[in-house]
């Protein structure tokens, strides 16, 4: 389902839980599909003992991908013209992530959307924006 300009207004929101109790298994899957095998995301021994982090953490691109699922569910398949984010905090195994889209501008045939994903503590992990075609 794509968005229709006639039903859309600035300030409209759409929210989804995109990961619940994020597993190390999903981090391994993402390494396998993206080709980013940085041990910081899958190798607990290296990450704690050599890199000095408390545990492995998610690829930024995994969080962007999870957030993208919320976005495409909202705007429809093949409707995105732009999608960009800043990674503001790390995402850890066990996190529960909620992604939210907010319509900020509607123009002829397209709309701008603010995007943010927060963890279970209300900390923002990615924020950004998108532009989508609307009917």
């Amino acid at each position: 389902m794509a968005l229709s300009a006639s039903n859309l207004k600035v300030g409209d929101t759409h929210e989804e839980v995109v990961a619940e109790n994020l597993s190390r298994g999903l981090l391994v899957m993402y390494a396998g599909t993206s080709g980013d095998y940085n041990p910081l995301h899958t190798d607990e021994v290296y990450t704690k003992e050599v890199a000095g982090y408390p545990s492995v953490f998610a690829h930024g691109m995994l969080t962007m991908g999870l957030t993208g699922k919320m976005l495409t569910n909202y705007v429809g398949d093949g409707r995105l013209k732009k999608y960009g984010v800043r990674f503001t905090n790390q995402v850890w195994p066990g996190d529960t992530l909620t992604s939210k889209a907010t319509v900020v501008e509607i123009r002829d045939g397209e709309c701008d959307i603010e995007v943010a994903t927060t963890n279970q503590d209300g900390k923002t992990v990615v924020m950004g924006n998108a532009t989508a075609r609307v009917d």
Binding site: Y37, E49, V50, K82, Y83, G84
Partner: peptide, 27 residues
């Protein structure tokens, strides 16, 4: 990454490694 020991190379990596700060796509 780790193997028998916590890293498979002898030398200490030069930094904590690169992180991804921003990503933008245009379709």
């Amino acid at each position: 990454g780790s193997a028998k020991g916590p890293s498979g190379i002898d030398e200490k990596p030069a930094s904590s490694g690169g992180l991804h700060a921003e990503q933008h796509f245009e379709y």
